[in-house]
Amino acid sequence: MFEARMAQASTLKKVLEAVKDMVSEGNFDCSEEGICLQAMDVAHVSLVNVLLRAQGFEMFRCDRNLALGIQLANLSKVLNCAGKDDAVTVKAEDEGADTAEFMFESSKGDRITTFELTLMDIDSEHLGVPEDTTYTAVIKMPSTEFRRIISDLSTIGDTVTIEVSKDGASFQVSGDIGKGNLCIQSNTAADKPSERVEITMEEPTKQTYAMRYLSFFTKAAPLSDTVTISLSPDVPLVVEFNIGEEVGYVKYYLAPKITE
């Protein structure tokens, strides 16, 4: 038996918004630790890794590990029926269940909506993401600022070169209409920690990425005030959004473009 209750259905809704344009389906792996989703885009260039820790739920029970194979567009339809302040409870029988139940409860407890979502068998190829990678450059900034940079620059071109040097971090883009270069610098004096920009550099780093995927990653901005972007030569970029203090995270990995 699997049963988990989250006080804010909106968190789950935001998680889904953060992944559904990039991947169409995935296995939600449930264990005592929590709920984990790892999925790649169709081109196998980027990967999203979501973790919702058990302690982030009001109630969490998972007797046996199970994978809920879900078509994300369908889950999105169900979650769109949740009210802004609704709580959500997810239930499933053990492995082999054909459906999962989603129940939304209004904060006053006077409105309860229940859906049975059809599950599917998904052969998901799990990649082993090394956890001990050290990155030569890390940029922490407000997630709204990251979203704005990617949104602005993606109108100019479809590839972006991120360069971190002693002068700051620059985002260089070129396209048919011309070129753009946006440079940001550390600003650790901002009043609120969430408004600070912190650039840490072990060594100057310059890598090129497909803009399209970075645009997908900005869909997670509503989940977190800040985003951390970590890069190193010739390894995938990591873009990380933490959910709450301890609730979990959405991490995206993007393979770099390499000059031939």
């Binding site: 260039v45 990967l47 190829e125 799990h126 990649l127 082993g128 090394p130 995938p236 393979a255 031939e260």
Partner: peptide, 14 residues
């Protein structure tokens, strides 16, 4: 020009 690499080049199957 630059070439898009695949994630499998960096991340192996566990």
């Amino acid at each position: 020009g630059s070439k898009q690499t695949l994630l499998s080049r960096f991340f192996g199957a566990p």
